[in-house]
Design a binder for these strands. Structure first.
Lengths: 133, 133
DNA sequence: CGGCATCCAATTCGATACTG
DNA sequence: CAGTATCGAATTGGATGCCG
C-alpha cells in the first residue's frame, strides 16, 4: 500500500482496537468475583464449598450467580456428582483455561505490588497500604 | 531440606499465594472503569475530556472518581496545565505503567475471544454473543 | 451439599444540573 | 474544560429459611 497512515490515525486505530478488546474481556470478567473464581479453578476442579471456603468473603448467593455467568459464557463446566449428599464440581473449560495467562499476569503483578508496598513501608504493613504508594 | 511437602500442601500454598496476589491486584483495579482507563493511558497522556470521549458510556462523575482512586494509589499522575480554559492531563506513573503487560494480556485475550465468537456464529455477530459460547 | 427465594441494607453507578 | 452536587436507579451483599 502506498497510502501512509499518519501517527495520529495509527494511534487512533491501535488504541481503539486495544480498548475494544479490553471491553470485550472485561464484559465477561465483570463483577467482583469472577477473576478470583477463575484463579481458583485454574489449579483444577473445585466443588462449590471449596470455592466458597477459598474465596474469603463471598456469599453463597454471589458464588452461585457468578458461576452461572461463567458457565453461560462457556468458561466453566458444571458437573453434578452422584455422591451421598449431592456434590457439584466446577472446572475450567478449555476455553476458560485460555484465560490462565491473563490471570497469572494479574497474580504476578499482585506479588510485585506487595513487595513494593513492603519496601515503601519498610516492613510495616498497613491496613491502608493502598494510600501509601 | 529433608522435609517433604506433599502435593496437597504444595497446592494449598501455591494456590493461596496466587489467590492473595489476585486479590491484591483486583483491590486496586476494582470498579467498572479502572482497567479501561489504564488501557487508554497506556498509549500516552490524555486529558479529562479525551478519556471521557474515548471511554464510551462513562459519566464525568465516575471518571473523576476512578482517576482519583488511581492517583491515590500512585498509578496515575495529574497535571493541571495553564491553558485558557483549564486543562488537566493524566498520565501513567512508572508504577502504573508496570501494569501494561497485564492490560495488554487482557486486550490480547479479548481479540482472540472476538475471533472465537465470529467463528462460532459463522460471521453473524450477535448482540448477545456472550450466550452463544 | 448445593443451591433458590425472600427481604433488606450498603454500595456503586448514571443523568442531570451547575460552577470556576 | 474539568470537575462537583444531587438524586434516584441498579447492583451487590448479608441473613435467614427452605428444599432435594
Amino acid at each position: 500500500m502506498s497510502t501512509k497512515l499518519n501517527k495520529e490515525d495509527f494511534d487512533q486505530d491501535v488504541c481503539g482496537a486495544h480498548h475494544m478488546a479490553i471491553r470485550d474481556t472485561m464484559d465477561i470478567l465483570n463483577g467482583k468475583w469472577k477473576i478470583r473464581i477463575i484463579g481458583m479453578l485454574s489449579f483444577g476442579p473445585r466443588r462449590f464449598m471449596e470455592l466458597k471456603s477459598g474465596i474469603e468473603g463471598i456469599a453463597a448467593k454471589m458464588l452461585s450467580k457468578e458461576l452461572r455467568d461463567l458457565e453461560v459464557n462457556g468458561l466453566v463446566t458444571r458437573t453434578v456428582l452422584n455422591t451421598k449428599p449431592i456434590t457439584v464440581e466446577y472446572e475450567l473449560s478449555r476455553y476458560g483455561y485460555s484465560l490462565k495467562p491473563v490471570i497469572d499476569g494479574i497474580a504476578a503483578w499482585g506479588i510485585e505490588h506487595r513487595k513494593t508496598i513492603i519496601n515503601m513501608t519498610k516492613g510495616r504493613v498497613s491496613e491502608h497500604h493502598k494510600c501509601y504508594l
